[in-house]
């Protein structure tokens, strides 16, 4: 079966009270992932996935997170009972390692370009802006000549496509993550008439990113003297909140059609 835009028109408004079964509604996160995949696929990014229940090597060690790093503390990470060394992944970065490992095993050297949308976990109390389970999208680009300037260009393009009709500015600020060096925080600003007032002309913190730390490449079996690249990780829930003006992140897992049916 092949669907085209023409045959399927989504109604975002309310359904009619008629006898016919109207089309169901897509979860906003699924719509966002669908759209992100489309934007990134066009510029050569493959969609990669990996396990949510992960070993500490792929979730921490291989990503250059030292054994005694505070992020590995009990209160931040869900550890699996009676399975030492197993956690619920705290980010989608585990798939960076798994993807590179599997490519190298198949004898496929870089260039690599992937995005990794998926669910991640943090052991924290939930409120309007925090959830213990949420969605992230990782990006990874490895090659011989990939630069921080490419990171800026790639993200600018993504946000331009996502917020159509707005002019998008990207700004980097220094930051620190064990898996990237240099590391940056990425801010975005939307300018233009079509931008909802709440977002217009304001710098918004979007994600952490940076140039992949040589140890990460090495741990995944990629030669860091030959290859380099960038990685980023953004929160999809937050992006959805901004995109549609959603006021409570807990709605994402509420399974409430009063929410879902608006999409």
């Amino acid at each position: 079966m092949h669907y085209t835009k023409k045959t399927l028109v989504l109604k975002a408004t309310t359904t009619e009270y008629t006898g016919d079964m109207p089309r169901g509604h897509i979860h906003p996160i699924s719509s966002l992932i669908r759209e992100a995949n489309r934007i990134f696929h066009e510029v050569g990014f493959a969609f990669a996935d990996g396990p949510l229940l992960e070993d500490e090597w792929h979730n921490f060690d291989a990503l250059n997170v030292p054994k005694d790093h505070p992020a590995r503390d009990m209160q931040d990470t869900f550890f699996i009972k009676d399975e030492p060394g197993m956690v619920l992944r705290t980010h989608t970065s585990n798939v960076q390692i798994r993807y590179m490992e599997s490519q190298m095993k198949k004898g496929i050297e870089p260039p690599y370009r992937i995005i990794v949308p998926g669910k991640v976990f943090r052991n924290e109390a939930t409120d309007m802006t925090h959830e213990a389970e949420f969605f992230q999208m990782e990006g990874l680009v490895v090659g011989t000549d990939v630069t921080l300037a490419h990171l800026k260009g790639t993200l600018a393009r993504f946000f331009k496509e996502l917020f159509k009709g707005a002019s998008v500015e990207i700004r980097f600020r220094p930051s620190f993550f064990p898996f990237t060096e240099p590391s940056v925080e990425v801010d975005m600003r939307l300018v233009g008439e079509n931008v909802p007032e709440k977002l217009r002309d304001k710098w918004i913190e979007m994600m952490g990113a940076g140039m992949i730390h040589p140890n990460v490449l090495k741990n995944a079996g990629v030669d860091p003297t030959k290859y380099q690249g960038f990685a980023f990780g953004m929160g999809l829930d937050r992006l959805a909140l901004l995109r549609w003006g959603i006021d409570d992140v807990r709605l994402m897992h509420s399974a409430d059609l009063r929410f879902i049916n608006q999409f």
Partner: peptide, 25 residues
């Protein structure tokens, strides 16, 4: 969706199952 189903996400955490986390807040 074409058959009228709407998509939801629910929590992966339940009160029963085979595996569990040892340190949930």
């Amino acid at each position: 969706m074409s058959q009228g189903y709407s998509e939801i996400f629910t929590s992966v955490f339940r009160d029963t199952g085979e595996r569990s986390v040892q340190n949930k807040i």
